[in-house]
């Protein structure tokens, strides 16, 4: 006898290319093709199916960054060039995600500085980049225009489009051929609605990465987990408006009570474990890119993903 499991999937996850190498007109040493899944995460029989990517998050103004990271990384956080470089060479991330936190200052208008920050990141690492723009709709247009322009040819992943503000970022992505992150508040329907809005103003499906918003472990993670599962499920069932790869980042991880109030000597470990549990679970739900801020989480995730990807790290069989 023998059992056969049928899921009857009719769809697959669309593919998105991030980063452009020299041959594609960019300067990245690698370019990722993410997505393409045809079944639930880690069930693919093909051993060469890609493992989730790990993006290391940094920013251009560390005042807005967690003190845990500022303590751990020390002076590095004040030097964007070195910080980005370390994310690549020392910590071994697959991508660097730059938050332009400087734009969160009141009445921010120094747009050339934004271009400068993106340039710095591009020169510090040859990994594909994710660039997070402003938090303020009033300056969206200028910021995204600048980011798009500076990163022209590099196939950046630009963040973040929301249902209430997607036109500026979409315009920049269209003009300079970048991909973008479409973020909606933890709901499969809202995710789909935003994708439809983007489609209708001309963004191609292979330029969109879904961010269903990740509440960190213990703070709404279960909602995010189910939203991701539902998105993946709908895509595999043939809903092309949801058939894009997903990105997961839980920005609250380092500020929640469990991490903030951990003993000082155990605080890094708590931060790392919290990021690890959240990110791995997000990958199991279907995230193709997971983002972390603690350097030590990267190594741990890499090991786990390697085992999940190829089936190595074999377990003792008695």
């Amino acid at each position: 006898m023998g059992f056969n499991v049928h899921f009857d999937w009719t769809g697959s996850i669309g593919e998105v290319i991030l980063g452009a190498t020299k041959s594609d007109g960019g300067s990245r040493r690698v370019s990722y093709r993410i997505g393409g899944g045809t079944t639930l995460p880690f069930l693919d029989k093909n051993p060469s199916s890609p493992a989730p990517l790990i993006a290391f998050e940094i920013c251009d103004n560390p005042v807005f960054w967690s003190p845990i990271i500022r303590n751990y990384c020390g002076e590095l956080v004040n030097n964007l060039q070195e910080w980005a470089k370390a994310g690549d060479a020392t910590y071994g991330a697959d991508m660097i995600r730059l938050y332009l936190t400087s734009t969160r200052q009141r009445n921010f208008s120094d747009f050339p500085a934004v271009g400068k920050a993106v340039e710095t990141a591009l020169s510090a690492t040859s990994l594909p980049l994710i660039i997070e723009g402003s938090n303020d709709p009033k300056i969206d247009s200028d910021i995204f225009q600048k980011c798009g322009e500076v990163g022209q040819g590099e196939r950046l992943l630009l963040g973040t489009a929301e249902a209430s503000r997607y036109r500026s970022i979409a315009a920049a992505a269209l003009a300079y051929n970048h991909a973008l992150i479409a973020q909606s508040p933890i709901d499969v329907n809202l995710a789909k609605q935003l994708n439809i809005l983007l489609r209708e103003i001309g963004i191609q499906r292979d330029h969109v990465v879904i961010d269903p918003y990740t509440g960190t472990l213990g703070y709404g993670f279960e909602y995010s987990y189910s939203a991701m599962e539902r998105i993946r499920f709908s895509a595999l069932k043939g809903d092309t408006d949801l058939a894009m790869p997903m990105i997961s980042s839980a920005p609250d991880t380092l500020t929640i009570k469990e991490v903030r109030e951990a003993d000082l000597d155990g605080q890094d470990d708590m931060a790392v474990k919290w990021e690890f549990y959240t990110s791995l679970a997000a990958a199991v739900a279907g995230a193709e890119i997971v983002c972390v801020r603690h350097p030590k989480t990267i190594g741990m995730l890499k090991l786990a993903f390697a085992s999940l990807k190829t089936g190595t790290g074999s377990m003792e069989v008695t």
């Binding site: 639930l40 089936g311 377990m315």
Partner: peptide
């Protein structure tokens, strides 16, 4: 008796289904 974590995901999902 999974051979790996990946193997566990696959077996356990199959059994549940």
């Amino acid at each position: 008796s999974p051979a790996s974590l990946r193997d566990f995901i696959s077996l356990s999902t199959e059994i549940r289904q």
